[in-house]
Design a protein around this nucleic acid. Structure first.
Length: 222
DNA sequence: GCATGATCATTT
DNA sequence: AAATGATCATGC
């Protein structure tokens, strides 16, 4: 079965309610997909399966999963304590042509303006097929959260603009961090180097810290 | 190579 | 145990 892209937020949430409580095998059967033994060689499987089940359309385009609704979809792997198991990837970080980029008009800012979070059991002790889908919820950053994201983003981008991208570690950033985002260590991309010259470096991505997404879960707990 | 979907594996 | 840095699959 193929899910028709939802035309309204209400239609989208109906699909979200429909898969809440189901396990991966049930969603996969509904989408006519085969569940792999584990995620080792298919790390994006769960995210792509949920995209399919909810009728997301964007594929690998740099825009929200539901462009018409301006909503970004993120699955959130949860451990036995009900907390996020991993950080959440947001988007690739621009390392060159940085003129005019501000949080408000950045890809990060656009995606984090409205997110549909789908918590999913992520314990390795639970077979992938048996992991359950939780109750998804919509989130928009509060004023405080917006300021945190804005500040971290701006500091990181300023460092990149100064040609200091290689001095940025994942320790920087209260809620948003910069980390490698590449197929492997040989995948390089252009960046601004120390003397303002061009250099090659590992592509980087923006990630939300688990402590930040944990606070979102806490707020929406019922 | 870039952008999507992330989790794995080593270090702290 | 948690966090950082490295890596896996796919489409174009």
């Amino acid at each position: 079965m193929t899910t028709t892209p939802p035309q309204t937020e209400q239609q989208l949430m109906q699909l979200v309610y429909a898969i809440a409580g189901m396990n991966i095998a049930q969603v996969a059967q509904q989408c006519e997909q085969i569940v792999p033994e584990n995620l080792m060689h298919n790390k994006g499987f769960v995210g792509q399966l949920i995209e399919m089940a909810l009728g997301a359309e964007s594929g690998s385009l740099a825009q929200p999963d539901f462009p018409h609704l301006g909503i970004e979809l993120k699955t959130l792997p949860i451990n036995a304590q009900g907390r996020p198991k991993e950080s959440t990837y947001v988007s690739v970080a621009p390392l060159t042509d940085l003129g005019g980029i501000h949080y408000e008009n950045s890809i990060v800012g656009q995606k984090l303006n409205h997110v549909l979070w789908i918590p999913i059991e992520g314990e390795q002790s639970i077979p992938l097929a048996e992991r359950r889908i939780g109750q998804g919820f919509l989130w928009k950053p509060s004023e405080h959260q917006y300021q945190q994201l804005h500040r971290d983003f701006t500091e990181i981008m300023e460092t990149i603009a100064l040609g200091q991208v290689e001095t940025i570690s994942a320790h920087q950033g209260e809620v948003l961090q910069l980390r490698p985002k590449a197929a492997n260590a040989k995948a390089l991309t252009q960046a601004i180097g120390p003397e303002g010259r061009k250099m090659m470096t590992l592509p980087r991505g923006f990630y939300l810290r688990p402590s930040f997404t944990a606070s979102l879960l806490d707020h929406f707990i019922r």
